[in-house]
Design a protein around this nucleic acid. Structure first.
Lengths: 238, 238
DNA sequence: AAGTGGTCTAGACCACGCA
DNA sequence: GCGTGGTCTAGACCACTTG
């Protein structure tokens, strides 16, 4: 019971929507009714509804109510920040991670700049290849500031680095800036991936920040183009 | 003075940050100080700060304050919903739009399904090619439900359809679901674009909704891969 | 006119960071 | 212990939709 009330209410409503207890294209109970139902204040209900709206579950309409959107097709929630492992589990796919390279090293000038490193700061450099349903589809090149993550092992990289950072180190990953581009495959891509003649690579550059706004990781994720898909829900800011 | 107070405060702070009146890596005045400064209540200040946080301008830190993030590199804000024209203007690029096809027509079965059309509903079908700095880079295929946009002209399509819908028709575009994939060029792509041997096309499918949650437009935007770039700011939802 | 969501207020108490 | 942000409350007034 020590959890945030508005997040509880949000989770309850999400669960009701996903289970079909609340039907798409119907209206939620009014804010006043929800106040009674959850025995709380209106602003708290409104915080919960704001979350639902931001995540694409409802559309609020002044004077009418909160319309439940049809969320069934939102099967691939890559919007926001999700690690490869979290995704793979969600998709129920057979995936294997190969750690092709793992070292503690002095950063190149380029990477030092990307990570805004101070002189003498070291990094972890990791290359991981992701195999999905028997095909090597993705290569992830991670550069992690050793100042924030002092120890790391190959075994952790085979599992989930994010899980280790959040659960074991107790750090909180807070936000990221992502950039998507398309490039021609490098020799390295050819070597690591089953390219099968594809002549482009989707490159996702990810700058990941902790909650104190420190940039601790730069990841370059290189995807075989035919297996790349990114879905986003966006509200227009007027 | 009839505008929302919290949006005014947000805009004021954004402008101060962008002009450099408030330095990156410094802290904003505390919420209490902002309450005094803007002569308002704390919840109103907090709404403004929430907007700043969602848009990547600040990082809130409990017990410390609101840290101003370095936003200079966020030069290409495609996150959210922005039309081609709004973007082109922001980038200061020399762009030309060619309307290659414009018709009012009976939808194909596939499009009828995408737009969830009722029987007998007609659509506008538009193909536009975007030339940037002398190269034909993007082809946009728009399918618009005629029920919501009863009249449309070729001239409007040469300008901005969104501008017409929002300013002239007074409709509000509210949210969208986007999907990014990479495909092989079709004959149509070859015909419309200066592909220069590129053997893939970045496809952005965009389902656009009005504020009453009605799906009024499906757009397929096909980009030459070397000119495609998408930047996103994402907060992790825990 | 009644019911809905949107904004704003003034105040309370809690959790966290820091000296 | 003090100042910070995080949550929650109870109530007010406004804007919009519908009958």
């Amino acid at each position: 019971m020590r959890e945030n009330k508005f997040k509880q209410i949000y989770s309850q409503l999400v669960s009701d929507i996903q289970k079909g207890n609340i039907q798409p294209n119907s209206f939620l109970p009014s804010e006043h009714e929800l106040v009674e139902q959850f025995q709380t204040s209106r602003e708290t209900i409104r915080k919960a509804l704001k979350l639902l709206s931001e995540h694409g579950y409802i559309q609020k309409m002044q004077g009418k109510g909160s319309l439940v959107l049809d969320v069934k097709r939102m099967d691939f929630p890559v919007s926001g920040l999700v690690s490869f492992k979290e995704l793979a589990v969600k998709m129920g796919k057979e995936t294997i991670t190969y750690v092709e390279h793992f070292s503690e090293t002095v950063p190149s000038k380029e990477i030092a700049e990307q990570l805004k490193l101070k002189a003498d700061e070291l990094i972890w450099e990791i290359v991981r290849v992701r195999e999905i349903d028997g095909e090597r589809i993705i290569v992830d090149k991670d550069f992690i500031n050793k100042t924030y993550i002092p120890s790391l092992t190959k075994t952790i990289c085979e599992q989930s680095i994010y899980e280790y950072i959040e659960n074991d180190l107790g750090l909180t990953i807070s936000f990221a800036r992502k950039e998507f581009t398309v490039e021609e495959p490098t020799n390295e891509d050819q070597r690591y991936l089953d390219l099968e003649g594809h002549c482009n690579i989707v490159v996702v550059k990810n700058y990941v920040y902790l909650e104190d706004a420190s940039l601790f990781q730069f990841t370059e994720s290189r995807h075989r183009p035919d297996k790349f898909r990114f879905v986003d829900f966006a509200r227009r800011s007027h």
